[in-house]
């Protein structure tokens, strides 16, 4: 069932590098959602038949497959449900440490993933104690906005 190779000569390894650019269409619903972010507005959609709401906005309901035409503007505040402090990132990613979290936007049922800012990460245990389910957060807008998810810079802990 097993076999081992006894080759002693080192096997060759060649470097392969691909650099490929793509263009991806966002479609109508996500285009409208992103244009909202550019204007510092957070938009979701709500299904008329089952009342489920979606952020990011989408134009059909995953639960009942009805078309959704009901757009609702939301306050960019919410509650953190889960998060991780990244100490080891990756090539081309943000510089660690940083925090990524899942935020339940007020008045919606779905979670929006985003960076969580404004937390002191110098003490890992103290930071973990802050980044708990129930933490209130508010979107901080980027100065330069390009109709992208990063038009929200991050969600920051809301001061009481």
């Amino acid at each position: 069932m097993t076999a081992t190779d006894t080759t002693t000569e080192a096997a060759l390894v060649h470097d392969v590098h691909w650099k490929i650019d793509y263009r991806v269409k966002l479609g109508r619903a996500w285009s409208r959602f992103m244009r909202g972010l550019q204007k510092q507005e957070l938009w979701g959609t709500r299904c008329e038949s089952c009342q489920r709401s979606y952020v990011p906005a989408q134009d059909y309901c995953e639960a009942c497959y009805e078309k959704i035409t009901n757009w609702v503007q939301l306050e960019p505040t919410g509650t953190l449900r889960a998060a991780t402090i990244v100490y080891q990132g990756f090539e081309g990613g943000p510089e660690a440490p940083y925090v990524v979290g899942a935020v339940e936007i007020d008045g919606t049922h779905s979670l929006l993933m985003h960076f969580i800012g404004g937390v002191d990460l110098s003490d890992s245990d103290a930071a973990r104690a802050v980044l708990r389910d129930g933490l209130r957060v508010r979107a901080v807008w980027s100065d330069e906005r390009t109709a992208a998810i990063t038009d929200i810079k991050h969600f920051a802990v809301e001061q009481a």
């Binding site: 966002l26 996500w30 990132g89 993933m113 992208a148």
Partner: peptide
Amino acid sequence: IMEQPLGMGAVHMGA
């Protein structure tokens, strides 16, 4: 578009 810019590889999602 929606989540790829947010700095997550598998281990971060797994966390």
